[in-house]
Simulated assay, not measured.
Amino acid sequence: MNPQRDKRRIITYPPETLRTFRVSAYEWIDNLNFTIRPEECLDNASEYVNIAKELFLEAGWDGDGEVELMWVPPFMFDEQQEEVTTAGITFWHVKQLEDGTSWLLSPIKLPFERY
């Protein structure tokens, strides 16, 4: 298998690491064709998803929608962001059904303010 297509290499940290991530809300991410189900990447995806849901709920998420992963390539970030490697950044994402707000759980500070 080509290691660049191995989805098991996307998440390289334990579930509890999510608690160190930042939650942001963004209006609106409408193209979800490039999201990945966590179950495709992790044997214990439910442990991660449960923590992500908890953090999203604490931030104001309504609790609806599917938690997924979303990848952003490294060239989309400021060159000063040392946390961004050539692998880019994978966010945890859920799109709230009622109003379409996207909630993001990120290991780095995102380049926009919370609305």
Rank of each mutant, 00 (worst) to 15 (best):
K95D: 04
M70N: 12
L18H: 03
K95E: 06
I51H: 05
M1L: 14
P15D: 05
E54N: 10
P73F: 07
V67R: 08
I36K: 03
Q96C: 10
D99C: 07
K95I: 03
N50I: 00
L69R: 10
Y115L: 08
S24I: 04
L32E: 13
L18I: 03
W71L: 08
E47H: 10
W71I: 11
A45C: 09
Y115I: 11
Q81F: 04
I51K: 00
L97Q: 13
Y48G: 10
E54P: 02
E79K: 12
W61M: 00
N31C: 08
T35H: 13
F77C: 04
A25R: 11
A59S: 15
Q81M: 12
F56A: 06
W28Y: 13
A52W: 09
Y48M: 14
L104Q: 14
R5M: 07
I36E: 15
R114K: 13
D99M: 09
D6G: 06
E47C: 01
L110N: 12
E40R: 14
E113F: 12
R114G: 08
T35D: 15
V49L: 01
R9K: 14
N31T: 01
L104F: 15
F77R: 03
M76N: 11
S46F: 02
S106V: 07
L32V: 07
K95Q: 07
Y48P: 01
R22F: 07
V23I: 05
N44H: 12
D43L: 08
E113P: 03
S24Y: 15
L69V: 05
P73Y: 01
K109I: 13
T17D: 12
S106T: 10
I89F: 04
A87M: 05
I89E: 00
Q4N: 07
K109Y: 07
G100K: 03
E68K: 14
W28C: 09
T101K: 00
Y26S: 03
V84A: 09
Q4S: 12
G88C: 04
V67G: 10
N33E: 15
P111E: 11
S46T: 12
N33G: 15
E66A: 14
P15H: 05
S24M: 11
V72P: 02
T90C: 09
M70T: 06
D78E: 14
W28R: 11
M70Q: 08
